Simulated assay, not measured.
Amino acid sequence: MAHKEFKVKRRAFLAGLAGAGLVLMLAGCGFQLRGTGPGSTLTLGELALESAGGPTSELTREITQELNSAGVTLNDQAPLRLNLSSEAFRERELTYGDAGTQERQLTLTVPWSLQRVADGAYLASQEEVVVSGTFYTSSDQLLTRDDAREALKSQLYQNAARRLIDRLQTFQPDSTRTVQPSSAAPSS
């Protein structure tokens, strides 16, 4: 009986050792789970959020969730306001033909700006987040096309929210708690 217990403990030890080795190997090559690396939190603290789509739009919900995950508190009296203009979808066909499967591209553009409430100055003005993806459709499966389009829209909202958080990470408070861009940030 003691020999069987030793084998079970040995297996558990070897499995744990293999798991730890895998984690170290992945960490060594730079792998990290999304949202867990350096910069996964924003130092902005508080933001007011103004969205053209309103508080119940899918984009607003995704951005709110990402901001909360990044440690930002949403408060209407915050010193900074994130303004989201109306998002726009553009769809285009990538493959042409009468029969068979067709590839379609869907592009989401989200105009945004970051504004100081006290003096109305823009820290980022007329910026855009642009994300795109593709889906496949067939002319004889119209319902499937609509389902694929809606699934891709949801994914694009999530990607746009993450990209916006990445852009907001370039804005850091200085010693006087005034927020400034840390460097020239490319728009996308």
Score class of each variant (00 low, 15 high):
Ala148Leu: 07
Gln141Asn: 15
Pro173Trp: 10
Ala70Ser: 10
Thr109Phe: 10
Gln77Trp: 15
Ala121Asn: 12
Val72Cys: 01
Leu123Asp: 05
Glu93Phe: 03
Arg167Cys: 08
Asn159Gly: 12
Leu84Pro: 07
Ser138Val: 10
Pro79Ser: 11
Thr144Arg: 13
Arg90Gln: 14
Pro111Leu: 07
Glu103Trp: 05
Val129Ala: 10
Phe135Asp: 00
Asp119Val: 01
Ala151Trp: 06
Gln141Trp: 11
Glu62Phe: 10
Ile63Tyr: 02
Ala88Val: 15
Ala99Ile: 09
Glu50Met: 11
Leu84Thr: 02
Thr137Met: 04
Leu168Asp: 01
Leu114Asn: 00
Arg104Thr: 07
Gly54Arg: 00
Gly71Ile: 00
Ser132Tyr: 12
Ser57Gln: 02
Gly54Tyr: 03
Leu74Gln: 02
Gly100Met: 09
Ser175Lys: 15
Thr176Tyr: 14
Ser154Glu: 07
Pro111Tyr: 07
Leu168Gln: 05
Asp174Gly: 12
Leu114Tyr: 05
Gln158Val: 07
Leu82Thr: 11
Gly100Asp: 07
Gln115Arg: 11
Arg177Gln: 15
Pro173Asp: 11
Tyr122Lys: 09
Ser57Phe: 06
Leu142Trp: 09
Ser85Pro: 09
Pro79Gln: 09
Ala160Trp: 12
Gln172Lys: 13
Asn159Asp: 15
Pro55Tyr: 09
Gly133Arg: 05
Gln65Glu: 06
Arg177Val: 11
Gly53Ile: 01
Asp140Val: 15
Phe171Trp: 15
Ala78Val: 10
Thr95Glu: 03
Gly53Thr: 04
Asp76Thr: 14
Ser69Lys: 07
Gly97Lys: 08
Arg92Asn: 13
Ser139Glu: 09
Ser138Ile: 04
Thr95Trp: 03
Ala121His: 13
Thr109Arg: 14
Leu47Glu: 01
Gln158Ser: 12
Glu93Tyr: 02
Val131Trp: 10
Thr64Asn: 02
Ala121Ser: 11
Thr137Leu: 08
Arg162Met: 11
Glu127Phe: 10
Leu47Gly: 05
Ser113Thr: 05
Tyr96Lys: 13
Ala148Asp: 04
Trp112Ser: 01
Asn68Asp: 06
Glu128His: 13
Val117Ala: 03
Arg92Asp: 15
Gly100Ser: 09
Gln169Ile: 00
Val117Arg: 07
Ser132Thr: 06
Asp119Thr: 02
Ser113Leu: 02
Leu123Ser: 01
Pro111Arg: 03
Leu123Lys: 06
Ser69Phe: 01
